[in-house]
Simulated scan of single mutants.
Amino acid sequence: MAVITFGQKEDAKQYIKRPAVYCLMFNKQKDRIAIIKTGDGKYFLPGGGIENNETHEGCIKREALEEMGMEIELGHFIGCAQRYFFSTNEYKCYLSEGYFYLCEMGKQVSEPTVWVEPIRAVENLFHEHQIWAVHEALKLI
């Protein structure tokens, strides 16, 4: 599996590898995509770090409930991409290794999900590898 890499690795720095699973989920009309807006105004795809021995499916289902209040079904695997970056919140260097999946909406069990046009997601997402995944998902729908 070829992995696309974003960001620049600086030789003098130690990077913490952080595998994560992300959801690309479109509404029924396929004209909006689910995103998460953090308290500091940054935009991300729903998903996050794999905990302990979680499977990809277990991770994304847990994250979807936590972030969107929604049960989801894991769909087509889009691909893997990674990004070198410095976290200004944690003051650490990370290699975010993202696994991206198309997902289907399930039952909404709490707070509603934020939906935006894919172009707005591309313009606002914080991580380049998440922008890449949106472009790849658009090819599949």
Rank of each mutant, 00 (worst) to 15 (best):
P46W: 01
E117G: 07
G106A: 13
M105S: 15
F77N: 05
A12K: 06
K13L: 07
G69C: 06
E123R: 14
S110Q: 14
A133D: 03
E97K: 13
Y84T: 01
F126S: 10
Y84C: 04
R120C: 04
I33W: 12
L24A: 08
K17L: 08
S96Y: 04
P19G: 02
A133P: 02
V109Y: 11
I36C: 09
G49I: 10
H129P: 00
Y84K: 02
A81F: 04
M25K: 14
A133E: 02
A34D: 08
L95T: 03
E104C: 14
E71S: 06
I72M: 01
H127P: 02
F126R: 13
Y91T: 06
P19C: 04
I78P: 03
K107D: 09
R18H: 05
W115K: 13
E111D: 11
E73D: 06
V3Q: 10
F126Q: 07
G106Y: 12
N27R: 15
N89T: 12
G58D: 02
P118A: 10
V21Q: 04
A34N: 08
R83T: 08
L65W: 06
K13V: 02
E71N: 11
G79E: 05
I35G: 07
V21C: 09
V109T: 15
E123P: 07
N52R: 08
D11C: 04
F100A: 07
L45F: 02
I131L: 01
I50L: 07
T113F: 07
K92Y: 03
F77E: 07
W132D: 02
E67R: 07
E104G: 14
M105G: 14
H127K: 12
L65F: 05
G41H: 10
Q108R: 15
G98E: 05
G75Q: 05
N53F: 06
I72A: 01
A12I: 03
Y91N: 14
L102F: 11
A121L: 05
P46N: 08
V134W: 04
Q108N: 13
W132R: 05
H127F: 09
V122R: 13
R32T: 15
K17I: 08
P118S: 08
P19H: 07
R83S: 09
A2M: 09
K139R: 08
H127Y: 12
A34H: 10
K17M: 08
P46I: 02
R32Y: 12
I50V: 13
E128Y: 09
T55N: 00
T113I: 14
K61G: 00
I16F: 12
L102E: 12
W132C: 03
M70Y: 03
M1G: 15
T55I: 04
N124K: 14
G47P: 00
G41F: 13
R120D: 14
N89M: 11
H56T: 00
K42Q: 15
N124S: 13
F126G: 02
M1W: 11
E66Y: 12
S87T: 10
Q8P: 01
G7M: 08
N89E: 13
M1S: 13
E111P: 01
C59R: 04
G106M: 13
H129F: 12
Y84P: 02
I33Q: 14
K13H: 09
C103Q: 11
A81R: 09
M105T: 15
E90R: 15
